[in-house]
């Protein structure tokens, strides 16, 4: 199930990259919205801090941003990867979510 979810997210991020480079670019303020960055944020925030798939999806998202931009491949990959690591670190060590077990 988790494997299928990750494959789905990989396809979704690729679709977002295509949307950003060919579709959203035509619309005023929408062209400044980075769907991949938002997705990477949300994936890593809502994933359990102990799981690692969000980090690899972040690296993949950064890779896609690099491929569809004119910059060298690797720059955004490192940035997104580091961002995911930071989110995981903060969630693991500094955030406590109160779970109500009766729900």
């Amino acid at each position: 199930m988790s494997f299928l979810k990750n494959i789905g997210l990989i396809i979704l991020l690729y679709c977002f990259a295509l949307l950003q480079s060919s579709f959203l670019i035509h619309f005023g303020f929408l062209k400044f919205i980075n769907l991949i960055l938002i997705s990477v944020f949300l994936i890593n925030i809502f994933e359990l801090p102990t799981r690692k798939s969000g980090i690899f999806l972040a690296a993949y998202g950064g890779f896609l941003v690099d491929v569809f931009s004119s910059r060298s491949v690797g720059l955004n990959l490192v940035i997104y990867f580091s961002l995911a690591l930071i989110i995981k670190y903060i969630l693991k060590n500094h955030v406590r979510v109160p779970f109500d077990k009766s729900i």
């Binding site: 295509l18 949307l19 480079s21 060919s22 579709f23 670019i25 035509h26 491929v67 569809f68 491949v73």
Partner: peptide, 25 residues
């Protein structure tokens, strides 16, 4: 090589999205 591969693979959907985006905007 990597960029060339991705651009080749994405040519068709990008063309469609570009045309749709332009008309919609």
């Amino acid at each position: 090589n990597i960029k060339s591969f991705f651009y080749s693979a994405s040519n068709f959907p990008q063309k469609i999205l570009w045309a749709v985006g332009k008309n919609t905007s």
